[in-house]
Design a protein around this nucleic acid. Structure first.
Length: 414
RNA sequence: CGGGCUGUGGCCUAGUGGCUAAGGCGCCACGUUCGGGACGUGGAGAUCGGCGGUUCAAAUCCGCCCAGCCCGACCA
């Protein structure tokens, strides 16, 4: 992609006055997102590429635990929400008037759709366990959205639902989901800051688990166990008597955090509401046991920025970098850079090619802000060679054009 | 939803009763530059969030509305 044609092709020098959070400031200045209204953002081409990469990582890990992807509608019938008693109790529910006495719901979560759907097709114990997920925009009418992408009114979420014949069966699957989540944190390079957290069960059960990423911009508070990479949400800390639920350590440190994922054991809360039962081996009708598991994809993107940045801009982990390489041409004559651009693309790498007629300082500043993992520079000073610099460190080296592709392959371990 | 604050070209700001609303960034043209947001000259771009009111006179004062931010509450 030639940067002279990128929409938008230029980064903002000044911080928008209506954004205070670090993730939103960098993402807006870098041209990744644009605010449409409070808590609602457009993903510009650069941001869209990152979002899709995160989405794909989550998708692969969900597929690997046997979950099947589907796509449910955003518009839900009101009746289903009345049936679960959440029409009145879900206080950030968007209710749309469609006719004089007709209302529908803009989906904030999908238990109300998936449960009647599953009931329509699943009848026998032989069909369990079953798990489906989707990656879709969710709508919650937050009274106060804030912190850029961390808490919006419309946001992209992966929601997985699993169905089981028993609590034991659920527990087994639950562990595999937890493992998949851990892999995801690793693949987007936030594992070090992200920990399984004990939290209240809310509507559904006594306790639930969530995954919290330690960050100053987080609006949650957790108590991190010093010994075992586990945390306890502040809201239940008294219940656990200030001890790590897993290792009994009392060395817990209070920290702000971002909830990037959660898991709810729903038990038969929704299957009962919709009369979703299966026939066991003896022909008896038993309520289905359910669980739901969420990951905020757009929130994850913001969390990555909150963790991976310096004072100059974003430092995208290589797994989610919008382009594999940012090629900067500082020469008047673009012949050499054009050739490198072709070579990289021929090698299967995505390239953002800064071919703009701008000063070197401006190109460097914007490259740092945008944060693509590898930066290459062609200039009079590189004397026929190519300057290689990774965004995550300050080392600069000159390499031969002939070794460029191998170097790229090694970096991205293709 | 309670409390506080803000709204001026695309972005950031100055102007807080008085002449034609000022500057920076960005944009367009020309020229000089060309390794850390470089410089010069010229140019385009604003019914000062909206409506109503006070006044000889309103971006400026008052009322209502809208939008946005922050604190709190809420967060299945």
């Amino acid at each position: 992609m030639k940067q002279s044609r990128l929409f938008p092709k230029r980064a903002l020098k000044e911080v928008p006055k209506d954004e205070e959070s670090l993730n939103a400031q960098f993402l807006i200045r870098g041209g990744f997102i644009d605010k449409t209204m409070a808590g609602v953002y457009t993903y510009l081409p650069l941001g869209f590429r990152v979002l899709k990469k995160i989405e794909q990582i989550v998708r692969e890990e969900m597929n690997s635990i046997g979950a099947q992807e589907l796509l449910m509608p955003s518009l839900h019938p009101k009746e289903y929400w009345i049936q679960t008693n959440r029409w009145d109790s879900f206080d950030v529910l968007f209710k749309l008037d469609t006719a004089k006495d007709t209302q529908i719901v803009l989906g904030p979560t999908h238990e109300e759709v998936i449960t009647p759907l599953a009931r329509k097709y699943i009848f026998s114990y032989k069909d369990f366990p079953m798990a489906v997920y989707q990656i879709q925009n969710k709508f919650r009418n937050e009274l106060r959205s804030r912190s850029g992408l961390l808490r919006g009114r419309e946001f992209l979420m992966k929601d997985l639902y699993s169905f089981h014949v028993s609590q034991d069966d659920l527990d087994e699957y639950y562990i595999s989901v937890t493992d998949a989540y851990e892999k995801i944190w690793g693949r987007v390079f936030i594992a070090e800051n992200t920990m399984k957290t004990y939290a209240s069960g809310g509507d559904f059960s006594k306790y639930s688990h969530e995954f919290q990423t330690i960050s100053d911009s987080g609006e949650d508070t957790v108590h991190v166990c010093h010994d075992c990479h586990i945390a306890v949400n502040d809201e239940i800390i008294d219940d656990v008597n200030r001890k790590c639920p897993e290792c009994d350590s009392s060395d817990l440190v209070k920290k702000p955090s971002i909830e990037v994922g959660n898991i709810f054991k729903l038990s038969d809360r929704f299957s009962k509401a919709f009369g979703f039962e299966y026939a066991d081996a003896k022909g008896a009708e038993i309520p289905v046991i359910m669980a739901s598991y969420g990951i905020g994809i757009s929130r994850l993107m913001a969390s990555i920025v909150e963790i991976h940045h310096d004072d100059k801009g974003i430092i995208w982990p290589k797994s989610v970098t919008p382009y594999h390489v940012h090629l900067l041409n500082l020469k008047q004559d673009s012949t050499e850079a054009d050739a490198v651009y072709e070579t990289l693309q021929g090698g299967g790498f995505s390239v953002l090619y800064d071919d703009r007629d701008k000063g070197a300082g401006e190109k460097f500043a914007e490259a740092d802000l945008i944060g693509i993992s590898v930066r290459l520079v062609i200039s009079e000073k590189t004397d026929g060679k190519i300057e290689w610099k990774e965004r995550s460190n300050s080392d600069i080296e000159l390499i031969d054009a002939s070794e460029l592709l191998n170097r790229m392959r090694a970096f991205y371990t293709l």
